[in-house]
């Protein structure tokens, strides 16, 4: 693990206005993420973990505080800058996959490789997640786990600097979930992509370099795993 901070988060606060009610999703979060590390964010729903990830991914804006990515302040970036940031640096994986139903597995990956600056071949990305044989299947023809692995292939195919995964196993059964986690772990290990995984499933924390516990919009604990458990050994 290198010492250079990829993300540097300082005093991050997010307040949502829901009608007449203000919801404090984040209350002053400070955190650094380092190059190549795999971090799991753990917390119950409403703890603010998704909000944190969304701001790190340039999908949402902060109310106060700063998030910088390799020295660049994301909280001050404009619309076009954030689009470029997502386009060239970030790989996303979501709970509900967000695949394009009208495109095949390969084409769903190509959606990203077509606009990236240093992409891998879509076939290669799909091979990494074990879907080399299902290139021409449409989402409707794939199982949930397979769809999620297509989403992972899509996320890694641009050779992103960071991989942000929001509940990647949330919609999957445990067996399928482990296959997905293995894919993520392998990418982190082989490509050294800084990876952040959000989950409310504490069992998954065992595969991380560091585990960040969130509760009520604040970091309650940051734990370092001296030994990382391979996903195959995780059960829930």
């Amino acid at each position: 693990m290198a010492n250079e901070a990829v993300f540097s988060i300082k005093g991050l606060t997010k307040v949502y206005r829901m009608g007449e009610v203000s919801v404090h999703a984040l209350r002053g979060v400070d955190l650094d993420l380092y190059d190549g590390e795999l971090v799991v964010f753990l917390g119950p729903s409403g703890s603010g973990k998704s909000t944190l990830l969304n701001i790190m991914g340039g999908l949402d804006t902060a109310t106060e505080g700063h998030v910088s990515y390799r020295g660049k302040d994301l909280t001050r970036a404009g619309e076009a800058e954030l689009t470029g940031y997502r386009r060239f640096h970030v790989g996303f994986v979501f709970q509900f996959y967000n695949l394009i139903p009208s495109l095949t597995a390969k084409e769903n990956v190509a959606v990203v490789t077509e606009i990236a600056s240093k992409p891998m071949r879509p076939e290669d990305a799909l091979s990494i997640v074990g879907l080399g044989g299902r290139l021409d299947h449409f989402p409707a023809q794939l199982s949930g786990g397979e769809q999620q692995r297509v989403a992972i292939a899509r996320a890694i195919s641009k050779n992103p600097d960071v991989l942000l995964c929001d509940e990647p196993t949330g919609a999957l059964d445990s067996e399928t979930g482990i296959v997905v986690l293995e894919a993520l772990e392998r990418i982190n290990r082989e490509l050294h992509t800084t990876t952040a995984i959000i989950t409310h499933n504490s069992d998954i924390a065992a595969m991380a370099d560091r585990v960040v516990h969130l509760s009520n919009g604040q970091i309650t604990e940051v734990a370092t795993n001296s030994v990382k458990k391979p996903p195959r050994e995780i059960h829930w």
Partner: peptide
Amino acid sequence: NRELASLRVLGYTKAE
């Protein structure tokens, strides 16, 4: 809506 927003998330511009 969802599909287009997903593309925006993946880094597609508004024009695209």
